[in-house]
Write a protein that binds this DNA or RNA. Structure first.
Lengths: 351, 351
DNA sequence: ATCACTTGTGGGAGCGCTCCCACGGTACCT
DNA sequence: AGGTACCGTGGGAGCGCTCCCACAAGTGAT
């Protein structure tokens, strides 16, 4: 009621100008207070803040965006259909990390799906209109043109999971190589001798790295290389099942499997069951992701956990830094950041 | 390359003014073309469109928002933590409906979670800043202050699932009453005589309506009312289990159960199994929502399907209408719309 | 006292649009 | 011929902010 009565006669929302008049200062001073500039005396600041409170002033975002040429918004672009987004806990965790990192900034997060061609088209328009200050890109395939589009438009962007070792965008990733090594070394430590591997989709860089980690861990432990112990999967349950069946046929003596994802491991488990192998007595099984599947599997699955929430957090840190750096357009192109976060092996009954 | 060379020397994005100069027309005319006004001659329109294409002109959203006092954005507000949002397929379906309804407008959708107090606070600021033209509210509890806040700020809003029969906001809902009747009539039609009901959370209006539908269907079929056949649930699996156990104790002769949600039915199924009752031979079971759970249950669960995707679609229709109507500020307050969509019974093996 | 800085402040200019008024032209009536 | 209507068009004004320059007042070295 008080706040209502205090409103200017115009009836609309109060403007900077009105706040300035009320506080007995100039427009520029109010702007400084609102934006937290240090070059304001304490007395003036207090007067302005009082006026802001009395009038219930809230800055007009559109005016600010127009004048300052920024939007205070960033987009989380998911180049997948909504369905995938909801199905995989990965996104939920990522979103939480991103959200918490953003919660004490004025930045706003937009969630944009670009699964269909139509949505792609819209996204391109959207980016061309520079409606966001920066972009977070998750789950990008190797041949996706999106990252290049972003570079061309000079929009700051951070990618989760680089497309290759030569990724040009700033990226955040978990240590796929190290995680795989952890898994394999764990199996070796448990006395397993014949450790097979079901890969992920090898057009995904992270999947390649997991396979590299598997190979190097075995080599460093003095195991002889055996390509017959490696079978390609595709991150799906059916793929895991098929791969496991093939491995059992080729190397019936195997006593451990490292699968490139939990879902893959679930498929492998089926195939092992069908073949009458007990887990972990006959064959130890380790997955990757530490998803809900791992916890609920029978027996519970040992798995490599990625700090997804933290990855989201770090992505925001890097993106905000990149946005801030953009102002002086010098000294770009250098200092490309490729952040890699450590993984953790969660041991359960399957190994 | 052509488009790059065609850019104005300023290097930045082309403006309306530059397009106007290039097309040899005035600023206003370009604006008319961009906004699809009919009061432009075909020749002029073509010239402007050519200039737009050559320069790669994209309107500046901030400038438009400032001048026109609208944002071309609407928010889908979810007063729940992210976790719930991802866990329930309801939201995913809703989002798809909303997205498709929006895809041929210039409106952009923002997804806002307001589960914690902190997020609530942010949301209030956000709405006060009028950063969206309208709001879609899903999953609102009876005592939530959010709807009133929206009314006070005079922000157009549509709610899914009215809070009561006296809902003041425009709302879209599925026919909970009718859906429950369908379920119960189906059971009666199958010759069941003693039909129990596990309710949802009764502080949710839709849950009340389902219970009303159950009661009325029985009454209209000439069954005598028996409150011992009704037990309160809370939409959770554990609640369903507990309620079912209680019902079995009170009325061991029951031969059918209508549960207020699929999850509740899943709980009931456990309790029935433990009690040695076979489904559907001894007890028929019907759920509500037709979620993935229903399809994957053993046996597959008969369930009432709500057209959630269509609800999302209709919500957008109503919201856009309300936003458009707002311009002439007369004739508001009347014509409150409460849209109710029909449900459909999906019969499976459990009944 | 003079100069050179620094600090806090006011307000002009301008961001890129939309809205709207004014104007010339054409068409159709008297 | 004059009057009236409408159509298509140009461009001024203004949306509410940020940026930046100018300037007054204070500070300290000379």
């Amino acid at each position: 009621m008080a706040s209502h009565g205090a409103r200017s006669r115009s009836g609309g929302r109060p403007t900077l100008e009105e706040v300035a008049a009320r506080a007995g200062v100039g427009r520029g001073t109010v702007s400084r207070v609102i934006n937290g500039s240090p070059r304001v005396s304490d007395a003036t600041r207090a007067a302005v803040e009082a006026a802001v409170a009395e009038l219930g002033y809230v800055p007009n975002t559109a005016a600010r965006a127009l004048a300052a040429n920024r939007t205070d918004a960033i987009a989380l672009v998911v180049p997948e259909p909504e369905t995938r987004f909801f199905a995989e806990p990965y996104f939920s965790d990522m979103l939480r990390g991103v959200g918490s990192a953003l919660s004490d900034t004025r930045m706003q997060l937009l969630l944009i799906f670009a699964g269909s061609d139509r949505e792609r088209q819209r996204l391109a328009q959207y980016l061309a209109a520079h409606r966001v200050d920066g972009v977070l890109l998750v789950s990008v395939h190797a041949d996706d043109p999106l990252p290049d589009m972003l570079s061309q438009l000079e929009i700051p962007a951070v990618i989760s999971g680089p497309r290759s070792a030569a990724e040009t965008l700033t990226s955040v990733d978990s240590d796929n190589y190290g995680g795989a090594r952890q898994a394999v070394e764990h199996l070796i430590g448990r006395g397993r001798r014949t450790i097979a591997h079901i890969t992920g989709r090898l057009d995904v860089y992270g999947a390649q790295r997991r396979t590299d980690g598997y190979r190097d861990a075995l080599r460093d432990a003095g195991h002889e290389a055996d390509e017959l112990l490696i079978e390609a999967g595709d991150f799906t349950e059916e793929g895991g099942r098929r791969a496991m069946a093939a491995l059992l046929e080729r190397r019936p003596d195997l006593d451990a499997v490292f699968a490139a994802s939990d879902v893959t491991a679930a498929g492998a488990r089926h195939a092992l069951r069908e073949a009458g192998r007990r887990i972990p007595d006959d064959v130890a099984l380790v997955g990757y992701d530490d998803s809900a599947i791992a916890r609920h599997m029978d027996p519970p699955l040992t798995s490599v956990r990625q700090p997804i929430e933290e990855m989201g957090h770090r992505m925001i840190d890097l993106l905000l830094a990149e946005i801030a750096d953009r102002r002086p357009p010098a000294s770009r192109e250098l200092d490309r950041r490729q952040m890699v976060l450590a993984t953790e092996l969660v041991e359960r009954a399957s190994s």
